[in-house]
């Protein structure tokens, strides 16, 4: 018995739900969360995008330092962005299939920010309606 925790883009919630149904796993729990990932330590990677955003953001009314700080935080990974946390309970043998389906539904060409999947062991589960425990309680 395994718990699959997948953090995905908000926009991909629908695609993830569809992928789960197609894999035969209809049950899941989803929560709105805020998340961030790896920090970009090399400033040259984000420099082009930063200049582009700064040229759009700087005007006569707003504070230049504040704009610069916000644009940098937006790009270098220190800001939190909204994400959806899916929790799926699965039998051991179904885990690779589910991981593949979630990966396929969420992979984009941005190269960053697509989310992470964690697999945790679960010792027991109980279905409240019938009182079944263990593997029978999952689906």
């Amino acid at each position: 018995m395994k718990e699959i925790m997948a953090i995905v883009r908000m926009k991909r919630t629908g695609a993830t739900k569809k992928a789960l149904v197609e894999t035969g796993v209809a049950g899941f729990t989803a929560v709105k969360v805020l998340g961030r990932g790896r920090l970009i330590t090399d400033p040259t990677v984000i420099e082009d995008c930063r200049q582009k955003l700064l040229s759009m953001g700087v005007d006569d009314f707003s504070d230049t330092d504040e704009t610069e700080r916000q644009v940098t935080a937006f790009l270098d990974g220190s800001r939190f962005f909204p994400r959806r946390l899916f929790t799926v309970l699965a039998h051991d043998e179904d885990v690779p299939r589910i991981v593949e389906a979630i990966t396929k539904a969420n992979h984009t060409d941005h190269g960053i920010g697509d989310g992470t999947i964690f697999i945790l062991p679960v010792t027991d589960a109980v279905r409240v309606r019938t009182g079944e425990t263990g593997e029978a309680a999952i689906w």
Partner: peptide, 17 residues
Amino acid sequence: VSPVEEVYTISRNTKGL
């Protein structure tokens, strides 16, 4: 603190953090 058995990163399509 709980144990995590496997981790996958979607953007790089790899196993691990």
